[in-house]
């Protein structure tokens, strides 16, 4: 059983995300990147599957600045190997990533691909269904639990309203992971540093070209102000009084 987990960096929203001078993309040089949190869960799910079923896990990411760090972290977390995929295109959107990864994954002979269900910058669709469709494999998104039974995966898919379903999928398949059964584990930095000093990252070159998107971003900007909240100012005690007054005014709590 060979599992590939696809990882991707996204802008860290704790830091400011600036728009570039063209006004159509983020200023990629000023952005602080971090692992997409859904990919983080996909990675945890992959390592859990490795621990429970002995599957071999490969972490895969498109080559980019900072991506090595992310792959080393995956090795420190417990994946067996990490591969950076180089492409001719600089694009990292889901259709481009899927085009680059499909061939590489097929060559690797993987049985199951896990990746985050979405990312905050997935303007052109989500990776899992695009990749699966390119590979001709079944896929399931919004997955919160995966177990392996022979050549099948049993997954829990979540819907709005708290409904869930258990699906059975023949392998090979692609799953878009929303949450692992447990929060992503902590990796001590000493282990990370050890891995960075000793582990070797593999690499693969993507053969396929990135497909045209058929869609152009004409503007990227902060959402229009307007309605917005009326801000309550002051020390916490004063703000608390204002809030309680509001609630009482509207009969939302007992007067």
């Amino acid at each position: 059983m060979h599992i590939a987990v696809i990882l991707k960096q996204v802008p860290d929203l704790v830091e400011e995300v600036e728009v570039d001078s063209q006004g159509t993309d983020i200023d990629r040089d000023s952005v602080k990147w971090k692992l997409n949190e859904f990919d983080d869960h996909a990675l945890e799910q992959a390592v859990l599957l490795k621990e429970s079923s002995g599957a071999e896990v490969t972490a895969v990411a498109l080559a980019a600045d900072g991506v090595d760090q992310l792959l080393y972290a995956a090795v420190a977390r417990g994946v067996d190997r990490a591969i950076r995929v180089t492409t001719a295109s600089a694009r990292t959107d889901a259709p481009a990533a899927a085009a680059a990864l499909a061939g590489v994954l097929a060559d690797m002979g993987v049985d199951l691909v896990l990746t985050g269900v979405q990312a905050v910058d997935d303007l052109h669709g989500q990776l899992a269904p695009i990749l699966a469709t390119r590979l001709g494999w079944p896929h399931v998104s919004v997955v919160s639990r995966v177990s392996l039974e022979g050549t099948e995966a049993e997954v829990t898919q979540e819907y709005s309203g708290g409904r869930m379903a258990t699906l059975e999928v023949d392998l090979p398949a692609v799953l878009g992971v929303q949450a692992a059964p447990r929060p992503p584990r902590y990796v001590p930095i000493s282990r990370l540093r050890q891995v960075m000093a000793s582990a070797e990252l593999g690499s693969a070159a993507a053969a396929a070209a990135a497909p045209a998107l058929g869609s152009t971003v004409t503007r990227l900007a902060a959402p229009p102000q307007g309605q917005g909240a009326q801000m309550l100012e002051g020390r916490p005690e004063a703000v608390a009084e204002q809030i309680v007054a509001l609630l009482r005014e509207r009969g939302l709590v007992e007067a």
Partner: peptide, 23 residues
């Protein structure tokens, strides 16, 4: 853009060669 949308929009677009825009 629901669980089904996450499954189907990009998948169907890819299968039919259409552009897809999310969110």
């Amino acid at each position: 853009y629901t669980s089904a949308g996450l499954d189907l929009a990009a998948g169907a677009a890819t299968a039919t060669g259409l552009p897809v825009v999310a969110y």
